[in-house]
Computed example of a mutant assay.
Amino acid sequence: MMKTSFLFLILFFTLSCSNDDDATVAPQTIIPTQIIKGHLNYNNTYGNENIVISNTADWQTLMTNFSTIGVINNTPFAETNIDFQNYMILFVIEVKNSTTTIDITNIQENSNNITVDVENLQVGLTTDVAHPFHIVKIPKTTKPIVFQ
């Protein structure tokens, strides 16, 4: 009787501890490639926005807008030819001042989406109006992008 009970317990624990194929996958950190970070001059083209760019036409429009508006300190793009078959662009911008930054601080791939943490790591007190921005490249995904 003792052996039967023991075997039953082993069988019960083995079945109850089996792998569940529907289990939630642990979040994975995505390391982005920084394309450019800085401040745009005051403009009416961009406000407080989070933009995902997944094609060449939208990317070209953004780069044209940047050259027309003007980047403070004339920071160059680290990369201009993006392979949109394999990558996408994340662009965050705010209306603040020239001494405040906007920073993509973390990107996580979850089972249902990609979360992008956005913060102001440096907050300035100047009264000028400028548009801090941050643009990064990540591997292409079909999951929704959620900015937080």
Rank of each mutant, 00 (worst) to 15 (best):
D83A: 14
S18H: 11
N48Y: 11
V52G: 00
F133T: 10
V118E: 08
F133Q: 02
F6Y: 13
G70N: 09
A57C: 01
T61N: 12
V129I: 14
Y46A: 13
F6K: 07
F6N: 07
T14P: 05
N106P: 01
V25F: 05
G38N: 03
S67C: 03
L7T: 06
I82T: 11
P132Y: 02
M1D: 11
E109V: 09
S54F: 13
E119P: 02
P27E: 06
L62F: 15
K143M: 07
N106D: 08
N81K: 03
D20I: 12
N48I: 08
T61W: 04
I10L: 14
L90A: 02
T56L: 14
Q148L: 13
S16P: 03
T56N: 04
G124V: 13
N110Y: 10
I135P: 00
T68L: 14
L7M: 14
D83Y: 15
S5P: 04
S67G: 06
L15D: 03
T99L: 05
V71Y: 06
G38V: 11
V123M: 02
E49V: 01
D103I: 04
A57L: 06
Q60T: 13
T100D: 15
V123I: 15
A78L: 11
D83W: 15
T4P: 05
N48L: 13
T4Y: 13
T75A: 12
N81F: 07
S16H: 08
F6D: 11
M2W: 09
N113G: 06
E119H: 05
E119R: 08
I93P: 00
P139S: 12
N113M: 14
D128V: 08
H131I: 04
L9I: 15
G47W: 01
I36F: 08
T99A: 03
I145E: 07
T127M: 12
T24S: 07
N55K: 12
N55W: 08
I145H: 06
G38S: 08
I93N: 05
T24R: 13
T64F: 10
I36Y: 04
A57H: 01
T29M: 12
V25N: 03
D103L: 04
T45N: 10
P27D: 10
S16M: 15
S16E: 12
T29R: 10
Q85C: 00
H131N: 15
L7V: 10
E94A: 13
S54Q: 14
T101V: 05
H39K: 13
S5I: 15
D58N: 12
L62G: 09
L125W: 10
I31L: 11
A26C: 07
D117L: 10
E94D: 14
T56I: 10
P144G: 06
V129D: 00
H131T: 05
I107P: 00
F133N: 06
N50C: 09
F91K: 04
F8H: 07
F13H: 03
I53D: 04
T61K: 10
E49D: 09
N120G: 05
A26D: 11
